[in-house]
């Protein structure tokens, strides 16, 4: 099996899809010659031309809105919002328009739009370039929400998102772009709404997304040295959620930690906790622990940033808290 970085895996999904399908084109800020602010689309304008790899003005309303309109008219647009913090600017188009056309029209319209974006801390960007806002979109019926954590997953999930007949908000994590991983020779589409069990265990389930999948796997390694068997599950798609897999895991382990980089309050972990307590109430041996960022706009100084966002140590501490009650 070939090895790709997460960045290359995103590019591979985009390029392979575009090669065989004239309906797909991309729009975003600096995605053409510059290759995007994260270098994801490097080289794509040379292959596909500037009609299909379109540099846009700094106009997040128009980028998303034009993507919606083109999608309604039969295209499969992939738009890039450079930082997920800037999704806030396109919120009206995402929430009131993309998500609602199908229902408001009584099923006359499909919006097969993919909105790629990225974010995450770990490089001192300050408070406006590092948020994790995925939970906002989980609250909106009509949108699908994907957050991939490995090269294999990001490639297979992006492919499925492009071909999904609904608007998909596709989150990538900045610090994951350079990580390497094996991918299948051919792109294997990963269905939206299917979780992935990264590590099987028996004592506690950690449900993690994005960068925290990797932090949780590190925490699991350390826990193992203390004789604690940790199961790590990544939902991968936040909406629709593979509740069945998550509940089955917690029924088996009887303990649950949720882990994401977004702030804890109102974060996706709250939804997970609700789903788990309902589906595995009689099985739980401890309150569900939630790991996430401190409830503060992210401070610039590296020492403060490091304090605010969660790491493997925070996940490990949460694991121990669930076991302390046994």
């Amino acid at each position: 099996m070939p090895e790709l970085t997460y960045r290359e895996a995103v590019r591979d999904a985009l390029s392979q899809a575009m090669r065989g399908d004239d309906r797909i084109f991309m729009m975003g800020e600096d995605i053409a010659e510059m290759g995007g602010s994260m270098g994801v689309t490097t080289g794509m304008v040379a292959e596909f031309g500037s009609e299909r790899i379109r540099n846009t003005p700094i106009s997040e309303i128009a980028i998303v809105g034009a993507g919606i309109g083109a999608a309604i008219q039969g295209m499969l647009p992939v738009v890039e919002i450079m930082y997920e913090d800037f999704l806030t600017i396109s919120m009206e188009q995402l929430v009131n328009q993309a998500a609602k056309h199908r229902t408001m029209s009584g099923g006359q319209i499909k919006v097969p739009l993919t909105v790629r974006t990225q974010g995450g801390a770990g490089w001192s960007p300050g408070a406006q370039h590092a948020q994790q806002l995925e939970s906002w979109f989980v609250h909106v019926p009509g949108l699908k929400v994907v957050f991939a954590s490995t090269p294999e997953d990001v490639r297979g999930l992006l492919w499925s998102s492009i071909y999904d007949p609904n608007p998909v908000i596709f989150f990538e994590h900045r610090t994951l772009y350079p990580i390497k991983g094996e991918v299948p020779d051919e792109i294997v589409p990963i269905p939206l709404g299917k979780a992935r069990v990264h590590l099987e265990g028996t004592d506690v389930t950690v449900i993690a997304t994005g960068r925290l999948v990797h932090e949780s796997l590190r925490a699991a390694e350390e826990a193992e040295q203390d004789g604690i068997s940790v199961e790590v599950v990544d939902p991968r798609t936040l909406s629709p959620l593979d509740s069945e897999t998550l509940i089955a895991s917690v029924r088996k382990t009887t303990r649950c930690v949720t882990a994401h980089e977004a702030v804890v309050q109102g974060g996706f972990g709250a939804e997970l906790a609700a789903v788990i307590q309902h589906g595995a109430f009689d099985y739980l041996d401890a309150p569900i622990e939630r790991v996430g960022a401190q409830f503060a706009p992210l401070a610039f100084a590296p020492v403060m940033e490091n304090f605010c966002v969660p790491h493997a140590a925070n996940v490990l501490a949460a694991i121990h808290r669930t076991l302390a009650r046994a």
Binding site: I61, G65, A66, I68, A70, I72, Q73
Partner: peptide, 10 residues
């Protein structure tokens, strides 16, 4: 309005 621009782009 932005969606009309997108339809026209298509």
């Amino acid at each position: 309005l932005p969606q009309i621009a997108g339809a026209a782009l298509a």
